Deep mutational scan, measured.
Amino acid sequence: CHSECLGNCSQPDDPTKCVACRNFYLDGRCVETCPPPYYHFQDWRCVNFSFCQDLHHKCKNSRRQGCHQYVIHNNKCIPECPSGYTMNSSNLLCTPCLGPCPKVCHLLEGEKTIDSVTSAQELRGCTVINGSLIINIRGGNNLAAELEANLGLIEEISGYLKIRRSYALVSLSFFRKLRLIRGETLEIGNYSFYALDNQNLRQLWDWSKHNLTITQGKLFFHYNPKLCLSEIHKMEEVSGTKGRQERNDIALKTNGDQASCENELLKFSYIRTSFDKILLRWEPYWPPDFRDLLGFMLFYKEAPYQNVTEFDGQDACGSNSWTVVDIDPPLRSNDPKSQNHPGWLMRGLKPWTQYAIFVKTLVTFSDERRTYGAKSDIIYVQTDATNPSVPLDPISVSNSSSQIILKWKPPSDPNGNITHYLVFWERQAEDSELFELDYCLKGLKLPSRTWSPPFESEDSQKHNQSEYEDSAGECCSCPKTDSQILKELEESSFRKTFEDYLHNVVFVPRKT
């Protein structure tokens, strides 16, 4: 048989008469490798580009789960590009990614509803959504962080984005990388972005840091009482949809009607710091009717980097990364020049730590249904340095008659930039024990000054392991946590139920 035959053949030295091919099969003959313009397919066939392209389009058009959109890589027609490569849609070739590779997620039936953290986790790592997304989240724990972890990498949506009755959302900033909504599939009414009845939605994105392009379709905003109209108009300008909307697409009466839409800028007039305090004062603000001013709200939190936005980490279910302080308005003076500047002394802060701070007014709604208010920009203030805590785990070892090696770990709280350490030492008198000992005694162990690591005695271990207080009263049991108490109650309830079950099964009433 021919060298490319495997198993047997019907005619000697003829690659077209093989029972099976050793390498690849091409047009009725066995070959060692697939010549151009053919590609290896499933490690035994040679196919042309049209064959591989037909497989790709067949799966793409069917949208069946589990099928493969075949691509070409290293002269092979394979189910998908290997790690580190992405497909070129024009020629199906796998090309190296520039940075992290995109991950295209194809949605069944063309859309997916995100109504819980669990459903959001199914899209973790996706960068391109081939379909439409509907966000409908009523509640949950730590929602802002969970949504950002699972949806934060999405850069492109081919269909539309719909935010509907998501009472738990305060902001859409968890879509931190969303840059493009194509609108290839539109919501009824030709809408590519749809926001309806979101009672706590206050911000779409921080438009000073976020760009969003909507290729096709219109915007729809109705019944978002805490979303200011200025935020919607800003989205029109940034996304390129200005002029597409009709009169009733953006409701003037049901958007922002319960919001404090600040239209003035508060400026800080005085800032002073110490290692654990920050004193702030800002310019006074009074609405047209000074009785509408209820006070100020001061927001602050630790910020290692200057990239904080107002609604980071917030949701309507209680999660809030900001510390909020309510401040009463100052006494009002008739003389504008003698107006008191409101302020606040922030206490209990960490030394040498940068804080993000902003302040906003708290006002009631005027009778004319106009909203007044003022808010400052987010500023960054760093507390002063102070003395560091003591170095940890000092170790001293003498390696000769004239040297001592000293080692330690950095302090747990540096409280500033540590530039150097101060080492103090003092000579001590020799131990009298060394002169009084009889060095001729056998088995004498000389006193040693070398360091030995501390260890816990058996008594201390027994005390720590004991669940009861000892007789001397030195140790006591740790208080039980809520989960331990709940577990004990469940076990007790189970024992009672099981005992009742045994009584009912074992003891049967005697027939009379």
Rank of each mutant, 00 (worst) to 15 (best):
V104E: 13
C105N: 00
C105R: 00
L107N: 14
L108G: 07
L108M: 14
L108V: 13
L108P: 14
E109F: 02
E109A: 10
G110N: 14
K112G: 15
T113F: 07
T113S: 12
T113Q: 05
T113K: 15
T113W: 03
I114F: 05
I114P: 00
D115G: 01
S116L: 06
V117G: 15
T118S: 05
S119I: 13
A120C: 14
A120N: 01
A120T: 10
Q121H: 10
E122W: 14
E122A: 15
L123V: 13
L123S: 01
G125L: 07
T127P: 03
V128S: 10
S132Q: 13
L133R: 00
L133F: 07
I134L: 12
I134A: 08
I135S: 00
N136R: 13
R138I: 12
N141T: 07
N141E: 12
L143H: 02
L143V: 12
A144Q: 15
A145I: 04
E146A: 11
L147T: 02
L147E: 00
L147Q: 01
L147M: 09
E148Q: 14
A149S: 05
A149Y: 06
N150H: 15
N150L: 05
L151W: 02
L151V: 14
G152W: 09
G152H: 10
L153N: 10
L153G: 14
E155F: 15
E156I: 08
I157D: 00
I157E: 00
Y160D: 01
L161C: 07
L161K: 00
K162I: 06
K162P: 00
R164T: 13
R164F: 14
R165M: 12
S166E: 02
Y167F: 13
A168Y: 13
S171P: 00
S171I: 01
S171H: 15
F174G: 02
F174D: 01
F174R: 01
F174S: 06
F174H: 08
R176P: 06
R176I: 14
R176F: 04
R176Q: 14
K177N: 02
L178F: 03
R179D: 05
L180S: 06
L180K: 07
L180Y: 12
I181T: 01
I181V: 04
G183H: 01
E184V: 14
T185M: 03
T185S: 12
L186M: 10
L186R: 10
E187C: 15
E187I: 09
I188F: 03
G189L: 13
N190V: 14
N190R: 05
Y191M: 11
S192V: 12
F193K: 00
F193I: 09
Y194D: 09
A195P: 00
A195D: 01
N198V: 01
N198I: 02
N198M: 05
N200A: 03
N200S: 06
Q203A: 13
Q203H: 01
Q203D: 13
Q203T: 06
Q203I: 06
L204V: 09
W205H: 13
W207F: 10
W207H: 08
W207V: 12
K209S: 05
H210I: 14
H210K: 13
L212D: 00
I214G: 01
T215M: 06
Q216P: 02
G217W: 00
K218A: 06
K218R: 13
K218Q: 04
L219F: 08
F220D: 11
H222I: 03
H222S: 06
H222V: 04
K226A: 08
L227P: 00
L227F: 06
L227W: 00
C228F: 07
E231V: 13
I232S: 03
I232L: 13
I232N: 00
H233K: 13
H233I: 11
H233L: 02
K234A: 08
M235L: 12
M235K: 00
E237L: 09
E237G: 04
E237H: 12
V238C: 02
V238S: 14
S239H: 08
T241Y: 08
T241D: 11
R244K: 13
Q245C: 10
E246T: 05
E246M: 12
R247C: 04
R247Y: 10
N248P: 11
N248K: 07
D249G: 05
D249Q: 07
A251H: 14
L252G: 07
L252Q: 12
K253I: 10
K253N: 07
T254L: 11
T254V: 05
N255P: 07
N255G: 06
N255A: 12
N255Q: 09
D257E: 04
Q258R: 06
Q258N: 15
S260Y: 09
S260P: 12
C261F: 03
E262L: 04
E262F: 08
N263P: 09
E264S: 05
L265V: 13
L266N: 01
L266Y: 02
K267G: 08
F268Y: 03
S269P: 01
S269V: 03
S269W: 03
S269R: 11
I271R: 01
T273P: 14
S274K: 12
S274N: 02
S274R: 14
D276V: 01
K277N: 13
I278P: 00
L279S: 03
L280G: 00
R281C: 02
R281H: 07
E283N: 14
P284Q: 15
Y285E: 03
W286Y: 09
W286R: 09
P287Q: 12
P287N: 05
P288M: 05
P288D: 05
D289E: 12
D289R: 08
D289W: 14
F290W: 14
F290R: 08
F290T: 05
R291T: 11
R291W: 15
R291N: 13
R291K: 11
L293M: 12
L293W: 12
L294P: 05
G295K: 14
F296E: 02
F296L: 10
F296Q: 10
F299T: 02
F299H: 07
Y300C: 15
K301I: 08
A303P: 02
A303D: 02
P304N: 14
P304D: 10
Y305R: 07
Q306N: 05
Q306A: 09
Q306F: 09
Q306T: 15
N307I: 14
N307M: 05
N307A: 09
V308H: 01
T309A: 06
F311L: 05
Q314E: 06
D315S: 14
D315G: 04
A316N: 05
A316H: 00
C317I: 08
G318R: 02
G318V: 03
S319L: 06
S321H: 10
S321F: 07
W322N: 03
W322S: 02
V324H: 15
D326I: 02
D326G: 04
D326F: 15
I327N: 01
I327G: 02
P329S: 07
P330G: 04
R332S: 10
S333T: 11
N334K: 11
N334P: 13
D335S: 08
D335T: 08
D335I: 14
P336T: 08
K337D: 15
K337R: 08
K337N: 15
K337F: 07
S338A: 11
S338M: 11
S338H: 06
Q339F: 13
Q339E: 06
Q339N: 15
N340Y: 06
N340M: 02
H341R: 08
P342I: 08
P342V: 06
P342S: 06
P342K: 09
G343P: 03
W344V: 08
W344L: 05
L345Y: 12
M346H: 02
M346P: 00
R347E: 11
R347L: 10
G348L: 08
L349E: 00
L349W: 00
L349K: 01
K350P: 13
K350S: 11
K350L: 10
P351V: 12
P351K: 11
T353S: 13
Q354P: 07
Y355A: 01
A356I: 08
K360W: 14
T361R: 04
T361K: 04
L362N: 01
L362C: 10
L362H: 15
V363F: 02
V363A: 15
V363E: 02
R369M: 10
T371G: 13
Y372V: 07
G373L: 11
A374P: 15
S376F: 00
S376G: 03
I379G: 03
Y380M: 06
V381Y: 04
N387S: 11
P388N: 01
V390L: 10
P391R: 01
P391V: 03
D393S: 07
D393G: 05
S396M: 03
V397F: 14
S398R: 05
N399G: 15
S400N: 07
S400G: 07
S401L: 07
I405L: 10
I405R: 08
K407M: 15
W408S: 01
K409W: 15
K409V: 12
